[in-house]
Design a protein around this nucleic acid. Structure first.
Lengths: 202, 202
DNA sequence: AGCGTTCTTCAACCGTGATGAATTCTTCGG
DNA sequence: CCGAAGAATTCATCACGGTTGAAGAACGCT
């Protein structure tokens, strides 16, 4: 029955979040007594942690991204991210995990370690240079901002922005974070010129 | 007694977060019955919302920022933000609010509306141009990323980065989000050149 | 004083997660 | 085949959470 509980929990947690799912209803749906959950997983948060084990592993995703050109990495990263989060099968557990990590300190430590080890460190190695570590951290934080604003908070106008628009406007910015500003001869006057936007496309 | 409840709640919420503070203990500390809280504020989340009313009002902060040059806005915004969040008296309630808004959907709607109306719309007006709304949204999301990564998650290396370093590396990126990439004649080779970093200072 | 409104308390309700004893089910050595 | 050890599962119950409705107290107004 352990697997049964896990399966039901994964589904319910994904759809309804952590708090609103009660152990009793969960147990009922799984056809067992509520106490059995405590027996197997110790507590409700234990069950939740067990569910998350399955869901989160962005490591291999990043490996593919880092393989390509650094110049085009921002655009590819945004596209990849959006694709993942727009797919409920993948995005929902991720959001769930982040949401829980922000709320619960214990899970927060977990996520923090994961982000640092799997994302920041690898990106740092790929970048190289004096500021590599800082740049990697800032890049990651900008991605976190995108995730939180668009998917967790559903804040407008980001929530309903087409992915192409995000890429067009945000990719140059991320490129700057990664590699520094273009040397550039002259400062622009004022108008928001988005010259050569195609240049940032993969 | 209403004010008394509010005062105690503000203090307790700030120190212990939302969930771990019980209405009963709160009422006891305020010297009233727990039911009185429901009477005045409708519910626990109602009380929480009332507490946040006091704490969150970045509107005037932003007005000052928008008054200055757009070129230097990113650096000033980062400095302002860091100063606010490093002061426990101001930062703690803010973090509390965001944390709660991410966890609880009802409070999330509140924060969403606040962000949009007080930040995104004003910034949009100041920017002008076709992409103004999108740029404002993306800029805000990058600030959110900074807040979440550095203060809510305490993710390294951001958490222990000096503010000057953040400004140096992130301000050019934010400038790009706001105004688009510099026209630039030639693409840089590869080395992370942070030429003319002083130009981004206020 | 009398009365209506606002404030405050009391007792109780229902649902939550957790616990420990009691019960059933497995399984495996003799 | 059996019977006991151990795991798996249920049952009854606990303590505690927020919320509610009725009842009482305090207050202002005419």
């Amino acid at each position: 029955m352990r697997g049964q509980i896990l399966a039901v929990a994964r589904e319910r947690f994904r759809r309804e979040g952590y708090e609103s799912v009660t152990m009793r209803s969960l147990a009922a749906e799984a056809g067992v007594d509520a106490a059995l959950i405590s027996y197997y997983f110790g507590s409700k948060s234990g069950l939740f942690a067990a569910v998350l084990e399955f869901a989160i592993s962005p490591a291999d995703e990043l490996a593919v991204l880092l393989r390509g050109d650094l110049e085009t990495l921002p655009a590819r990263a945004i596209r990849r991210l959006a694709a993942a989060y727009d797919d409920p099968e993948i995005g929902a557990p991720l959001m769930l995990g982040i949401r829980a990590a922000i709320a619960d300190p214990e899970l927060g430590t977990l996520l923090r370690a994961g982000i640092h080890h799997q994302l920041v460190e690898r990106l740092t190695d790929r970048l190289g240079g004096a500021d590599a570590r800082y740049r990697a951290g800032l890049f990651t934080s900008q991605m976190v901002g995108l995730i939180v604003s668009r998917y967790l908070l559903s804040a407008e106008p980001l929530a309903s922005m087409p992915v192409d628009e995000i890429v067009r406007l945000l990719a140059p910015s991320l490129r700057t974070t990664l590699l520094g500003p273009l040397p550039a001869g002259a400062r622009p006057g004022g108008g928001g010129g988005q010259a050569s936007s195609r240049a940032w496309e993969p």
